[in-house]
Amino acid sequence: MLYALIAGVLFGLYYALIGLGLNLTFGVLRMVNLAHGDFVMIGGFAAVTAFSAWHLHPLWSLVLVAVLIFAVGIALYYVLVPRIAATKDPEMISLVLFFGLSQVIEALAVMRFGNNTQSIYEPVFGKAPVSILGQPFPAVWVVSGLVSLLALLLVYLYLYRTRIGYSTRAVMASREEAEVSGISVHKVSAIAFAIGLGLAAAAGALAPFMLGGITPDLGVGLTITAFAVIVLGSLGNPVGTVAGGLIYGIALMLMQTYLPSWSALLPYLLLLLVLLVKPSGLFGRQVRSA
């Protein structure tokens, strides 16, 4: 029981990291990036490839790939998003657009990396399990928990301690008002979108350890789980993601302990429950209509 709880916290923090970027994107763009999980997959393949080719430590890969994908994200934003934002129903149309993107990324990943599962089995984070409250945990779980906390802290600082972060929050509150008050909405959104993708790729660099192995078709499933996590916290509120991640992680580990057969059902049930009972998530704003 204690073991499952702590494991849930560590695993939940990792899922918060996966969800964080998706949530930032949704908060700012009001668009759901269905290809989010595919950037996690890219980060994973990057880490595996860098490790096998140059023996680069996954934490270095994490930083590098996050920066690289950030740059890609900026470009991708200007190619895809402004056109969509001008349509009648951008929120819905974007779902389809990013689904298409997800297909393309998956297809390219298959061409580049093949279909076989890839992972890193060498104990790069040390062999010995780390003991928390007398319970032994794989070292990499602790590392990924710390990385997640650091990423959350950085996003928090970005949003609340920088000028552009202030603008970002203004856009999140209301696109129209932000635009009127002279904020460059596209610039703010492009950066938020790119940070979102960078965070996904960063989470991906740890995926070979946390998710068993990397395959090109990993993306869609991860995106859906990440959704459950961020809705639990609250869509559009990046900091609420932590709460969502923790609830998801702990509930998953308890399910795996007591009712393993139903554990996959969990994220969806939680999501439905939260949406119907308190649809704004645990930390969110009004989302219901008529």
Binding site: L211, Q256, S261, S263, A264
Partner: peptide, 12 residues
């Protein structure tokens, strides 16, 4: 015990 085929983490 059966687990979902999508299970990717068996630690617990």
């Amino acid at each position: 015990q059966g687990v979902p085929t999508t299970t990717s983490n068996y630690d617990v």
